[in-house]
Simulated assay, not measured.
Amino acid sequence: MSSSRIIMLVGGGILYLFFQVLILKNLVLFGIAFCFLYMMFILLLPVHIKTIPVLLISFFMGLGVDFFYDTMGIHTACLVAVGFVRYRWLQVLVPTGGYDDDLQPSILNMGFGWFFSYSFPLILVHHSLFFYIESMGTDLFISSLQKIIASAIFVLIMSIIVQLLLYRRRRGI
């Protein structure tokens, strides 16, 4: 990976982090739908990036969010779990002919159907872990389930909007 791509990757991660903690931190719909859009940075990394670098990026991104949210590692744990599952999930969804080198798995590059089947399960993994860790295994199953579903749908819609407004069809970051 060239140095300019690494700089763009780091810059994109910082933008996602600051957007999350400065703007989206207090954005909650109906008291149950939280917008954890920062996780889309991990999902939109180029497909050729292997698991260990994704885990490191996930760790530092989650740590940054935890620092501003005062959540004591919950965001870090959930994002690292998503980073761990991401590469294997990409292998399950490999299209005929494989992936191009340096391809970014976005709606514009892969289409809505593929992007939905790629991102929504990973969003559900993140949110399930987050809200069940947050509730500490108490009897808040229905409340946690409502937050998981509402927040996952909210993040998916927001990620679609962000991609359509800010991203363009290209090969990588």
Rank of each mutant, 00 (worst) to 15 (best):
I6N: 11
I49R: 10
I161W: 12
I7C: 01
I7S: 09
V54F: 05
H127G: 05
W89Q: 15
G73P: 08
Y118K: 10
G97V: 03
I161E: 05
T76S: 03
P105N: 05
G13A: 03
G11D: 07
P105V: 04
D100Y: 09
F130S: 09
N109V: 00
F141K: 02
L129A: 06
D102M: 01
L43T: 06
V94W: 03
G31C: 07
Y87M: 09
K50L: 12
D100M: 12
D101A: 14
P95G: 03
N26P: 04
L165A: 07
V65W: 12
G111N: 01
L103G: 10
P46F: 07
F130Q: 13
R86K: 02
G97W: 03
L56T: 15
M72G: 10
R88F: 13
I149D: 12
I74D: 13
R168L: 13
M110D: 11
F19E: 09
L124F: 11
L165D: 12
F59E: 03
G97T: 06
I7W: 02
Q146H: 14
I49Q: 00
R86Q: 07
V94N: 04
L17R: 08
G111R: 07
T96M: 06
T51G: 13
S159I: 10
P105W: 03
L44Q: 14
V10N: 04
Y118I: 00
Y87I: 12
F141P: 02
T96E: 06
F59P: 00
R168N: 12
L55F: 01
H75D: 15
T138Y: 08
G13T: 09
I42Q: 10
F68A: 11
V21D: 06
G13R: 08
I123A: 04
F84Y: 14
F68I: 10
S2T: 12
S144C: 10
G97P: 03
V54I: 15
S106E: 07
Y132W: 12
T71G: 02
Y167G: 00
I149W: 07
F36A: 07
F131D: 00
F120S: 06
F84Q: 09
H127T: 09
